[in-house]
Amino acid sequence: MDLENQAAIKSIVDEIGSENLMVVLGMPGEGLRLAVETLTTGDPSWAGPLAGVSLGLPVYHILEEKVRAQVPEEVYAEKLLMMEMVLDLPQIESDLASMRAAG
């Protein structure tokens, strides 16, 4: 994950704490895996400000079923519906499920 973004997120957590905070991502595949890992257990590449920092933030993907269900229908239809055809939704669900199971 981008080093500047890591630094920015770290400073947000330092400032407002992590209790009421969650992360919602928009990338698929390996990028999703790297981002989830970085924001929960720390930067796996050990290059960024989140190396060795376990933020433990709840992380979701915008196209997960339970997240999609929270977006008002008309907004969803206009903004996200087409991305269903572009990104592999079942893959995103199963990637997240296995990462969450692994803790």
């Binding site: 992360v23 919602v24 915008i62 991305m83």
Partner: peptide, 21 residues
Amino acid sequence: KKVIALGERDGVPGPLIAECL
């Protein structure tokens, strides 16, 4: 809730995630 929206250029970009949330 407070949310961090982190998107990708060729996936779902940040401003779009923010708008939906």
